[in-house]
Design a protein around this nucleic acid. Structure first.
Lengths: 233, 233
DNA sequence: ATAATTTTGTGTTTTAAAGCATTGTTATAT
DNA sequence: ATATAACAATGCTTTAAAACACAAAATTAT
């Protein structure tokens, strides 16, 4: 059930910044307390209002962090790819989670107890800087998102969401097919609109030859225009 | 021009958490590098796209952090009161400011070089924790704001803005008059709506005996109802 | 004070986006 | 393989909020 091979690969290849920060002794402590979990598609990793216990490390798959809003509407706040860390903010803020996270697709994650992370931060200032840096970048991103989602029109918001997908997950080998296959509803939840409007606006983009759509397969035909619409439209 | 008396008061009375964290030697270094600036009403403290250089400490007055959006529309992101610190995020993220800040009213601020703050963080892990904690709380606040501003209707957003004002600045001695006197336009910029809609909705709240309004003087008559509208409406 | 400018208050019109309904299509499960 | 459910597409209606226009009041400057 628990496959450690993925973990060993991560550590040995220094795939994530965090591993270059830790001393061999610290790495060993992390490895000893690193519990691997497998999640099914759409399975919740943690939910709003729960108390945070673990630093989650995404090893394989895709994860969304989201917040449930009014009338069952969901806002996707951030997307994660391997190898990224999340789930620590609420612990540091000393409060319950204000958002939830779930696997977009079958995913493998590692859970490291936050109490251990806290200890390591206390003895390794570079780890403290790692989190100060991460939190600062995310805060800037969140502040920017506030203005994007409240002031841009639907076309701008959808274009922006698509560029977020490009920047987070990139393309397949053909260099144009988005390497993530989301339901229209999730695209809507990412861009703060209803599912119908996401569908409608995607169709417009197809008509305008900015993208092509085949089920959940989205090809980006005119990325420059997409970014232009995202910036102004 | 530079009055150090306010500063001495801050230090001697441990008015801010940060001063209880620093050693006497560290406090001395901060004091030696602490430059006091006075700002007029609406004067910009720093602007979007500039490179961050200072940790700003608000000693007296009120400050808004905001982001200019589309068509001259402005979104107020956070409000500060004495004694709070801001302006450090962009430095930690190693990027230019993504938002601006300005004095709401005549204000006194201290500027501490971020390079010094960085040094102090390196030698004092409690200061590292101070910023990890602050950043984490603000990030949670920003994520929550995204959903509030995008999903709540106008009444809910305005009610929320008013509760933010209550929580940030409190009441005058009569326990009902808001201790901040904002232009309708700023109230609108805080609640993501046009000035007309801010005026209109304030009027509705007056009719419903939730508040009274006399120029910029706002009295909160029914705080419980206001918070209820903020939560659901 | 008086004029000029900004801010506030209202009514009306316009519009972007939500809501709803229906049908077709594609997965998933038995 | 077929039933069942979930998802996608599209047209039509409704509505919340923006945009606009103008008048009144309040600041600020001269």
């Amino acid at each position: 059930m628990i496959k450690k091979s993925t973990l060993e690969k991560v550590i040995s290849e220094d795939l994530a910044e965090i591993w270059t920060i830790l001393s061999p002794e610290e790495k060993r402590r992390v490895v000893d307390n690193f519990v691997i979990h497998n999640f099914k598609k759409n399975q919740i990793i943690y939910a709003e209002n729960e108390m945070p216990e673990f630093l989650w490390c995404l090893l394989k798959g895709k994860v969304k962090m989201f917040k449930d809003g009014i009338g069952g509407r969901q806002q996707i706040l951030r997307l994660y790819r391997p190898i990224q860390y999340f789930g620590y903010r609420a612990y540091f803020a000393n409060e319950p989670y204000v958002s939830s996270s779930a696997a977009f697709e079958i995913s493998t994650l590692g859970a490291i107890p936050m109490d251990l992370v806290k200890e390591l931060i206390n003895q390794n200032r570079n780890l403290a800087w790692f989190f100060i840096h991460e939190l600062s970048r995310h805060l800037g991103g969140s502040d920017t998102k506030i203005v994007n989602l409240t002031q841009k029109h639907i076309r701008g918001r959808l274009a922006e969401a698509l560029t977020v997908l490009i920047d987070n997950y990139g393309f397949e080998d053909d260099s144009e097919t988005l390497k993530i296959y989301m339901a229209r509803e999730d695209i809507a939840n990412l861009s703060n609109m209803t599912t119908s409007n996401a569908i409608r606006t995607l169709s417009s983009f197809v008509t305008e030859r900015i993208i092509t759509v085949d089920g959940r397969r989205i090809k980006i035909i005119n990325e420059a225009l997409l970014r232009k619409i995202s910036k102004f439209g």
